[in-house]
Simulated assay, not measured.
Amino acid sequence: MPHIVRSTIIDAPTMTVWNVLRDFNGHDHWHPAVATSTIERAQASDKIGCVRRFRLKDGSELREQLLALSDLEQTFSYYLLDTPIPMFNYVAHVRLLPVTDGDRTFWHWESRFTTKPQDAVALTKMVADDIYQAGFEAIRKHLKEAA
């Protein structure tokens, strides 16, 4: 079972980063892989159990469900419901923590999933690089442009 753990430091206060990340339907505004996103059944994007349906820029469509969200702890978790990629039981967790030296943010992003053994290395690299690392860089750019 692949287990991916990535983290970074963002040069912005945790509340600034959280205000972007906590919108479960907002990743199409900052993540370079996401073209469009909607919450099914017109639910609020912070309602536990809501499902986001989004299209990647390559045309693939995915669905993810919000499992948990805590403003107090600045965390959320989600589950991948549907994907054309051979990943199963994908659950991810995001957590922000303050870095008091410079009022910055520590961003921790991790996931576990199952897949065929022959796909594990390639999918682990894809999630780590094309999703997580690309997301870190995109948030940096997004916050810089918003400032």
Rank of each mutant, 00 (worst) to 15 (best):
E73Q: 14
S60G: 02
Q74Y: 06
F76E: 04
S70P: 12
R95K: 15
A42R: 10
N89H: 12
V91D: 02
K57E: 10
S60I: 01
D46R: 09
L80R: 04
P98I: 03
D82F: 01
M87W: 03
A44M: 08
M87C: 04
A68T: 13
L96R: 05
Q43C: 12
R95L: 01
A42C: 06
I39Q: 11
L80T: 07
R52Q: 13
R55A: 13
K47V: 12
L80Y: 02
L69G: 03
S70D: 10
D46G: 03
F76I: 00
Y90L: 13
T83N: 04
P98R: 07
R52F: 09
I48N: 05
Y90M: 10
H93Y: 10
P32D: 09
R41Y: 06
N89D: 14
S70F: 08
I48A: 04
F76M: 11
L80I: 08
T75H: 04
D58A: 07
T75G: 02
E64L: 07
E73I: 00
D82A: 09
A44C: 11
L97H: 10
F88P: 00
T100P: 01
V99N: 14
V34A: 12
R52E: 12
L56G: 07
K47H: 09
E73C: 02
S60F: 10
C50D: 09
K57F: 08
V51H: 08
V91A: 03
T83I: 05
Q43T: 03
L80S: 08
D82K: 08
L80K: 05
H93S: 07
F54P: 08
L80V: 08
E61P: 01
N89C: 02
V91S: 04
G59F: 03
P98A: 11
E73L: 12
A42P: 00
H93G: 00
T38E: 15
R41W: 04
L69N: 04
R53Q: 15
